[in-house]
Write a protein that binds this DNA or RNA. Structure first.
Length: 906
RNA sequence: GCGCGCUUAGCUCAGUGGUAGAGCACAUCCUUCACACGGAUGGGGUCGCAGGUUCGAACCCUGCAGCGCGCACCA
């Protein structure tokens, strides 16, 4: 048994003695600790209950929480908590990702800044030791932050993509796919990041429009001095790697040149003019220089024409060309300028045009990537057909559905995945090369099962027995090559946790951002089929991408990304969750405004105060007996509305319409429960109320509130748990979060008649308040209304109506003869009059109006002063000027109106 | 070039065939014993534009414009 003394509300502390404003911080920490102590988040694979599971999209192990995480994880928490209320056995499996490039880059930067050393200075083993230390130091920050948010993950099952068991799976899959012939090694053009010094997959390259230049130059024909071929290029710095000039065979301008040679200016050498269909006749001059080492298309053309490959760039994108000493060693962009100057000096530069083209940038290092030939490992995706079909036929359902199209399109155009990275932090490729064959293998064009079968390489989970004769491949695998196994591998170390896997795989819901649909979602689906013959999840919910109010993506460099921890300090975790969820649209991006979180906090406060009111109003003597027709209509009405709310919430969950749920919960509590019901029953809670009325009212309150708190619990778990405990809605030692949802509605009878009456009273009260305001007695409590032609049941409700309308008395007078000019309104309960006699004394009213007019005149002058001020009009934002202008107009109208009233009095 | 979204009040967004909505902001009133993180009242919208379908269109269809995103190409 857990010790409750330090966290449960002490009975001697009454609500009424508590602060007027809800203070979430202590409450949230207290309940999170209680849930952990109560083992509330643990998933039991042996349970007989229906299983419900989610795996967390693992955040980067050294990352820190941002708003995207908050939205994403709040949604998962809501789903997990809702499933527990539906009495399911819930597993929300947490963990972190080793994030190869990101983490390694962080440690390398720290190393450089603190010690002035590089990873190579340390060597692989020592460096990896440092990364692990870094991970130990920073690795649990984001986990702690998720706990602060209230996430109900089964922390006993926390996994890391480089855990021993997990790593074994990664290698195992590599070995399997290699033996299946889907993984091979080859020399290809890859996306090379010259800062991270590694290959990248196509998905890690961000195409960005750039303002650049198109250079037009000319190469002299070798057999016809003085005759030139014009060529356009954006990359003159690579021309030392040119091995040909290509033209389209259908281009009449150039047919005569095909098969002849032109002079490459530097290093000066003759290169052939070749014909290739790839060349676009329309573009530039229609002649294309071919640099197979530095362009993907050129590489293909080079292969078709058996051209040589001349690599003129180093891995960090400096020129390597000893034959051109003036360029050798220069950075690629410096060399570009120099090469252009050289061409110009040789008289070969014709013109330079401004030109916009797309340049691929490294996702992490934010520099242009370099197409580069290198030896890399590639994967031909497995189970493509099954994975494509699963989404197309609805076995896996995407929400919003339109992402299925994006997925299908990508699946149809799959390119082999470059899975090797020239990093140290990650899962090292489980391939060993035989010492004797090393040189040979290094230069091999490709490497696959054939080499394995010859015994030249070893591919396996363990090193070969005679390890000293073998050298292990130095590369590690792409991080996503481990994350794509996440749903499966987290539930099964190599020593299979078959019970967990059996109970909780496949998972029910995946909640993630649409930006990683290719990186992660699609690949997980393929891996799921490959590993378990089944899709890894049934539903994928794609969250909104969070932007700032200007519509820009949140980013560290823009500084437009609020720290969720600050927001939780200010507004509480519940306030942040609820506020964010309430504005999250279904299919589009979300523009974040801190005001939303403030509203979340305000809402928590409203809820807290509604409960505080109930506790102040009476001890726990509530009558929760049968709901009968004898109850006042307001009671039946609010209970019926609660039933509708529960049904609406249910339907919205089925459609994953989370914002709608939050909105319904918000409106019910604020507009229906507090503004209407609580106001209508206040009389019954006063000291002079009958004990029966009082008990009935407390009974209705408790029935509605206990169910309401339960419905709200997944969104605002802490405050609802707190209030349920304090109000006695859950027993000591039990938890609201584990309490199953009620199976039956509150109101079994037909509530229509009562609801009609309640609605009529609320509607009438609103009309009467309106009437009062219109006649400038909005704040007066001493008004009397007279109802003529009242509906027959109104006599029972005059007190409530008076309270709601802010009137001293509601008089039913079928024979009432209103004096001419008496304010009146037609209401659902009859004609209502507001006799003004005695309400307003001529002299006081005259004085009031005069005073009012003086005040307004000053305001008018103020506005006129501002607007008459040229610098204000010039400098203030247009909306402020418009606002002032509108204010001025308002004041002037008011002034005129009051003037008329004053004149009428006199 | 292909595809997908979006366009409704000053702002952020709901609203899918029947009298235009919410929150915030704004204006006025109220510190009345749950809550000023509150209550009441009010002003404010040719629902991007143009056609079409319909008794009736913010909603369905077509076209156009603007904004955003993804993919492909880019010498």
């Amino acid at each position: 048994m857990l010790d409750k003394a330090d966290w449960l509300w002490h009975p001697s502390v009454r609500m009424s003695e508590l602060p007027k404003a809800y203070e979430p911080q202590a409450v949230e920490a207290k309940w999170y600790a209680a849930w952990i102590a109560g083992n509330c988040f643990a998933a039991d694979p042996a349970s007989a209950k229906e299983a419900y599971s989610i795996v967390i999209p693992p955040p980067n192990v050294t990352g820190i929480l941002h708003l995207g995480h908050v939205l994403n994880n709040a949604l998962q928490d809501i789903l997990a908590r809702r499933a527990r209320q539906q009495d399911k056995e819930v597993l929300w499996l947490p963990g972190t990702d080793h994030a190869g490039i990101a983490t390694q880059a962080k440690v390398e930067r720290e190393l450089r800044e603190n010690e002035g050393r590089t990873r190579r200075d340390l060597g692989r083993d020592e460096f990896l030791k440092r990364v692990w230390e870094f991970k130990e130091k920073h690795g649990d920050i984001i986990i702690k932050q998720l706990k602060r948010l209230g996430c109900s993950c089964d922390w006993s099952r926390e996994r890391f993509t480089m855990d021993e068991g997990y790593s074994k799976w990664v290698s195992h899959v590599f070995v399997e796919l290699f033996k299946q012939g889907l993984i091979y090694r080859g020399k290809r053009i890859v996306n090379w990041c010259p800062v991270s010094l590694t290959a990248l997959s196509d998905e890690e390259v961000i195409m960005t429009p750039q303002r650049s230049k198109l250079y037009v130059m000319k190469y002299e024909l070798a057999d016809a001095p003085g005759e030139y071929l014009e060529i356009s290029t954006t990359r003159p710095e690579t021309l030392m790697g040119d091995v040909a000039v290509a033209v389209n065979p259908k281009d009449p301008r150039y047919v005569q040149y095909i098969g002849r040679q032109v002079w490459r200016p530097f290093p000066r050498a003759p290169i052939p003019v070749i014909a290739d269909d790839h060349v676009d006749i329309e573009f530039g001059t229609g002649a294309l220089k071919i640099t197979p080492a530095h362009d993907k298309a050129d590489f293909e053309i080079g292969k078709r024409h058996q051209l040589a490959i001349i690599d003129v760039l180093t891995p960090d994108a400096h020129i390597h060309c000893p034959e051109c000493p003036d360029l050798d060693g220069l950075d690629r962009f410096v060399a570009r300028k120099k090469a252009v100057a050289k061409l110009d000096a040789l008289g070969l530069l014709i013109k330079v045009e401004d030109y916009e083209n797309n340049v691929g940038f490294s996702e992490r290092a934010h520099v242009p990537i370099e197409p580069r030939i290198s030896m890399q490992w590639f994967l031909k995706y497995p189970c493509v057909r099954e994975a494509t079909a699963a989404v197309a036929n609805g076995d896996i359902r995407f929400r919003p559905e339109r992402w299925a199209k994006t997925y299908a399109h990508w699946m149809e155009n799959l390119q082999d995945w470059c899975i090797s990275r020239q990093l140290w932090w990650g899962h090292q490729i489980p391939v060993w090369y035989h010492q004797d064959k090393l040189a040979e293998l290094k230069n091999a064009e490709s490497l696959d099962m054939a080499d394995f079968e010859k015994g030249d390489i070893h591919v396996g989970l363990e090193p070969p027995a005679d390890a000293h004769n073998w050298v292990r491949d130095e590369d590690v695998m792409d991080t996503w090559f481990s994350s794509w196994l996440w749903p499966f591998a987290t539930m099964s170390g190599l020593e299979q946790d078959s019970a967990t896997l059996h109970k909780f795989y496949p998972t029910n819901d995946l909640v993630t951002g649409p930006d990683i649909i290719f990186f992660w979602v699609a690949r997980m689906i393929m891996a799921g089929f490959r590993m378990a013959d089944r899709p890894p999840f049934k539903n994928v919910f794609f969250t909104s991408i969070i932007r700032d109010l200007q519509g820009r993506k949140m980013s560290k460099s823009l500084g437009n990304s609020p720290d969720p921890i600050d927001l939780m300090d200010k507004y509480g975790a519940d306030g942040l969750r609820f506020g964010l969820l309430r504005i999250a649209p279904v299919g589009s991006d979300l523009r974040f405004d801190e005001v939303a979180v403030e509203e979340g906090r305000n809402f928590a406060n409203k809820l807290y105060n509604a409960c505080r009111f109930r506790q102040m109003a009476g001890e726990g003597v509530s009558d929760e007996g049968q709901v009968t027709r004898d109850l006042p209509p307001y009671h039946i009405d609010i209970m019926a509305k609660l039933d509708v709310l529960a049904a609406d919430v249910d339907a919205s969950y089925a459609e994953y319409r989370f914002g709608e749920i939050a909105q319904s919960l918000y409106e019910f509590l604020w507009n229906e429960f507090c503004d209407k019901f609580l106001e209508a029953v206040k009389l019954d809670l006063r000291a002079n109320a009958t004990p029966q009325a009082r008990a009935a009212t407390l009974g209705t309150f408790d029935r509605v509130m206990s169910r309401y708190l339960q419905l709200m619990s997944p969104y605002m778990p802490h405050i609802t748990e707190e209030l349920s405990a304090r109000m006695g809605y859950v027993k000591d030692g039990e938890f609201l979060m584990l309490k199953p949802l009620p199976a039956t509605p509150l109101v079994a009878m037909d509530a229509a008649a009562a609801q009609t009456r309640a609605a009529a009273i609320y509607e009438t009260a609103s009309r009467l308040r309106n009437l009062k305001a219109e006649y400038h007695v909005g704040s007066r409590k001493d008004v009397r209304f007279v109802v003529k032609g009242a509906v027959d049941w109104l006599s029972d409700q005059t007190q409530v109506l008076g309270l709601l309308a802010g009137a001293a008395e509601i008089i039913l007078d079928p024979a009432y003869e209103a004096t001419k000019g008496t304010p009146a309104a037609i209401t659902p309960v009859g004609e209502v009059y507001l006799p003004m006699a005695g309400l307003i004394d001529m002299a006081t009213e005259h004085a009031r109006l005069t005073k009012e007019i003086e005040k307004i005149k000053i305001e008018v002058l103020k506005c006129q002063g501002k607007l008459g001020n040229a610098s204000f009009v010039d400098r203030a934002p247009p909306e402020v000027v418009a606002q002032e202008t509108a204010r001025l107009k308002d004041w002037q109208e008011k002034l005129a109106q009051l003037g008329e009233m004053l004149a009428a009095l006199a």
